[in-house]
């Protein structure tokens, strides 16, 4: 593989707290691990809760995620992305795996009316406090209806893209593309200075 100029440049930036904490955890610092839990525990639990629904299973997922973080922190490389993204990527993957192990839950979700689930409803606003979270909410509103449904059915309900295509009765390539351009739009919106 050739080198990729720019890809691995270390940017001169002040690491965010979570990055610093993960660096300390990498050295076996259990006090830093506790701080890290305080810092990102509600994000990890929140996404687990949203995806797996059941609170007890969300707790199990949260524990699995933090054990992964503890074990793998020594191998974490800031050049590949922020620690927070790393942790949330693990959290989502673990939550989706838990859902996919449980087909019964999926069927329940289908009958419970998934399409309602994918539209914003005011009740969900209980979660939104920080400015960044408001930004996500605002930016999600810039997605087309189909982009939003595709992204949310995959991310929050743990459906694969062929399952999303079936649920929304759309061709596979359309859903695949909407997931990508929906996320690109979200990314671009979030990166726009506000």
């Amino acid at each position: 593989m050739g080198s990729e100029p720019g890809l691995r440049l270390v940017h001169a930036r002040e690491p965010a707290d979570v990055d610093v904490l993960v660096g300390q955890v990498a050295l076996g610092d259990s006090a830093a691990f506790e701080q890290l839990y305080d810092e990102v525990g509600s994000m990890v639990y929140g996404v687990a809760r949203r995806v797996v629904r059941d609170p007890a299973r969300a707790e199990d997922v949260t524990q699995e995620v933090f054990l992964d973080v503890w074990r793998k922190a020594p191998g974490f490389d800031l050049e590949r992305g922020s620690a927070k993204t790393w942790i949330m990527t693990i959290a989502h993957r673990r939550a989706v795996d838990a859902v996919r192990r449980n087909e019964a839950q999926k069927k329940y979700d289908e009958h419970a009316g998934v399409p309602d689930e994918v539209h914003h409803d005011a009740a969900d606003d209980r979660l939104i406090a920080a400015e960044e979270h408001g930004a996500v909410r605002d930016c999600l509103e810039t997605l087309t209806a189909l982009q939003l449904e595709s992204v949310r059915l995959a991310y929050f309900n743990g459906y694969t893209y062929p399952e999303v295509a079936t649920l929304l009765d759309k061709p596979l390539p359309t859903i695949k593309t909407r997931m990508r351009d929906g996320l690109i739009r979200l990314r671009d919106c979030l990166e726009t200075p506000r």
Partner: peptide, 10 residues
């Protein structure tokens, strides 16, 4: 995607 998940903090 991570930011979208983080917005669900609880």
């Amino acid at each position: 995607a991570a930011l979208m998940g983080a917005a669900e903090a609880e």
